[in-house]
């Protein structure tokens, strides 16, 4: 079942498709510039030692986001 969640809720080891970015302003631009445009597949690679930030595989690059940012990326969960 595919449901809409935010990226921070996706467990390590699974992946999701970006549906939209709910952030505004500069954060929005940052996230878009990373290639987080709708339709992009994002893989959750690892959590850091203290649980946050989390590293994601976005278009072949490994990028770490804090929860404040990843919670503004809406994704459709499930394969």
């Amino acid at each position: 079942m595919a449901g809409l969640v935010t990226l921070n809720a996706v467990p390590v080891g699974s992946s999701a498709l970006v549906t939209k970015i709910s952030a505004a302003g500069m954060t929005r631009r940052r996230l878009l510039d990373l290639g987080l445009v709708p339709g992009t597949r994002v893989e959750v690679v690892r959590r850091s030692l203290l649980g946050d930030p989390v590293a994601y595989n976005i278009r072949g690059a490994l990028v770490a986001l804090r929860k404040e940012q990843s919670s503004q990326v809406v994704v459709s969960n499930g394969e």
């Binding site: 940052r30 930030p53 690059a61 490994l62 990028v63 770490a64 986001l65 804090r66 404040e68 940012q69």
Partner: peptide
């Protein structure tokens, strides 16, 4: 906001 790239 904060974004950190982990390069190869």
């Amino acid at each position: 906001s904060f974004v950190l790239e982990l390069p190869p």
